[in-house]
Amino acid sequence: MTEYKLVVVGAGGVGKSALTIQLIQNHFVDEYDPTIEDSYRKQVVIDGETCLLDILDTAGQEEYSAMRDQYMRTGEGFLCVFAINNTKSFEDIHHYREQIKRVKDSEDVPMVLVGNKCDLPSRTVDTKQAQDLARSYGIPFIETSAKTRQGVDDAFYTLVREIRKHKEKMSKDGKKKKKKSKTKCVIM
């Protein structure tokens, strides 16, 4: 069974824990209790493949930012979460993405942009803004509501699919490099 290491990042209060708990335990946590770091595991079937999701729910508070490099190193894919009623959390996505790329030393890291709290009427981040940002990053965008469960499975499952595509691409690139290195030079 394939294991996928997913990391949920975003500013404090955007609903990272609520999304994760909704996926794992099928219930909505409405009281806000700032996370330092929590880890969850769940076995699911995605596109006919049974897999184990190892999900790291991270601290959004700035005082825990020193811990970010460590979990970013171990993560295979990242859910970059903002709240649709919090423009600052949307603007912060850029910083999370840049930090992930720096730590992973790669421009090509599996990510999904997630606009959470889409059940709320007080939207300050337009869907088109988020779609445009995701398009500019070359990553999928999904709106979710941890409260109603809308888009929750889709967000995590899409990230797994992005990781699969990335692994497939990397193995193809690896095979191309191996083929090239088999060419021999004969000096007579």
Rank of each mutant, 00 (worst) to 15 (best):
I163V: 14
L120W: 07
G12Q: 05
T158A: 07
V186A: 15
E49P: 03
E76I: 15
F156L: 14
Y40D: 11
Q43A: 06
D30K: 09
D132Q: 11
E49W: 02
K101N: 07
M170G: 06
E63Q: 08
F28A: 09
E49D: 08
K176F: 09
C51L: 04
K184E: 15
S136Q: 07
F90Q: 03
S39K: 05
I46C: 08
M188P: 15
K169R: 14
E62T: 08
V45L: 08
A11F: 10
I139A: 07
N26R: 06
R161F: 02
Y71R: 08
L23G: 15
K172M: 09
D30E: 08
K178P: 09
Y96P: 01
Q22W: 06
I100Q: 03
A146V: 09
T74V: 06
K104P: 01
Y4Q: 10
D54F: 01
E76Q: 10
L53F: 07
T158W: 03
K167R: 13
D108I: 05
T183C: 13
Q131D: 11
V44K: 12
Y157C: 14
K101R: 12
D173M: 11
T20Y: 05
V186Q: 14
D126M: 08
L120D: 06
I139M: 14
I187Q: 15
D108N: 09
P110W: 01
V45T: 09
K176G: 13
E63C: 04
E49N: 05
C51V: 11
K177F: 09
S122C: 09
D126E: 12
V160E: 01
A83M: 02
V103N: 09
F90T: 09
Q43D: 09
V103C: 04
H166Q: 08
Q99G: 04
K101T: 03
E98P: 00
D54S: 11
K128L: 12
R149M: 15
E76L: 15
L53V: 12
D54Y: 05
R73I: 04
R123V: 12
D105S: 04
G174I: 10
Q25D: 05
K180S: 15
H95W: 13
T50K: 07
D154N: 12
E31D: 09
S89I: 10
K176R: 14
K128G: 13
E37C: 12
T183M: 04
F90G: 03
V152L: 14
G174L: 12
K117M: 15
S39H: 12
E76F: 11
T87P: 15
D57T: 11
A130Q: 03
L6M: 07
L133M: 13
D154F: 07
A59Q: 11
M111T: 03
K172Y: 06
K182Q: 08
C118S: 11
A66R: 04
G15F: 00
S122P: 08
S89R: 01
P121W: 05
N26Y: 06
I139G: 02
